[in-house]
Design a protein around this nucleic acid. Structure first.
Lengths: 171, 171
DNA sequence: GCGAACCTTCACGCGAACGTCAAGGTGTGG
DNA sequence: CCACACCTTGACGTTCGCGTGAAGGTTCGC
């Protein structure tokens, strides 16, 4: 059975940097990616795992999961290339540094600076996504235009002489 | 062979199959694609040029242009793979057949059947596009959520103690 | 009828985004 | 302590979506 720590009387709250570290296959199952892809994304600099085990296993924390899901969304839903995703997410090294700096910074002023940087990036992400959505919207409009055109033609034919009903083609 | 009607006093609407046939490079300029891509799309069955010249040059009519523009939109704006585009456009051979049959069919009833088929296809295209747009919309919402979260954190820091102004960071 | 520009069909090459072994090290329940 | 699943780093293979010649035929203006 599980050798789970039976009763941690009081987790000392001072530093608990082990919330839920997952190994690569669990991450894969969780995100719908493959281990190979995840390693590849690391290779091209899209994300760094939160840490490594003593035996050098990659270990991922929840924020890594979120990032991977975001990457997958950008790839599958938005159809961006990994290169574009790299530009959107911008410099994984910076993220790591920022998190480090943020934790280290007791100074509220520095935290604000970091937060503003993050906010700017998210703003750019949103506008990029919205631009894409707008182009998609245009395409949908055009397709609807063709649809209306066809409907008009069809109506013309049907209206001119409502011959016999075509069975179950009403819809 | 066919002689071209030099001066069709009254275009009898029965057959005028030479409106504006373009060669591949003109089509490329018109659609923003490359000749190589256009040939490749033909190779994988995305479209057949309206005809060939006596010297075997590919010749494209306006509906080919429209189709190519649609393909480009699906590829660039919607981010579909060419395989997915093939599924969306569904069987170029059918389109050719349909057009042929439509022209040949004086029968209004058969024309209606063909039009209904086309309409169904366009309907499926629209719903596929809208599904994609919805997923993109979800992504945008999530990104906005993160944005709001960051804003809240930032506001908390700034509100708690509005220290000194950060110069020109007002955006 | 000639040259330039365009076209044709192969055919090979390339970067992106992984898949797939191979040859080992790691973690753990029994 | 061992079996076995999981992990590691290479390294090579694959598919997609074309780019880039090579070698030759076609159009067209002059």
């Amino acid at each position: 059975m599980d050798r789970v720590p039976a009763a941690p009387t009081v987790p000392p709250a001072s530093d608990a940097p082990q919330p839920h570290l997952l190994r690569i296959q669990e991450v894969a199952a969780e995100t719908g990616l493959t281990p190979r892809s995840i390693r590849y994304y690391e290779e091209i600099g899209l994300l760094q795992p939160a840490g490594r085990s003593p035996g050098d296993y990659r270990l991922y924390d929840p924020s890594d999961l979120e990032r991977l899901r975001f990457i997958r969304g950008l790839r599958d839903d938005a159809g961006f290339s990994l290169a574009e995703i790299g530009l959107l997410l911008e410099d994984e090294a910076a993220r790591v540094r920022d998190r480090e700096r943020f934790r280290a910074a007791g100074d509220a002023e520095e935290r604000k600076v970091i937060l503003r940087g993050l906010l700017d990036r998210v703003d750019r992400q949103v506008s990029t996504l919205e631009a894409k959505a707008a182009r998609l919207g245009t395409m949908i409009d055009e397709a609807n235009g063709r649809r209306a055109h066809l409907r008009a033609h069809l109506a013309e034919l049907e209206d001119g002489r409502p011959a016999h009903e075509t069975g179950a083609a009403a819809r």
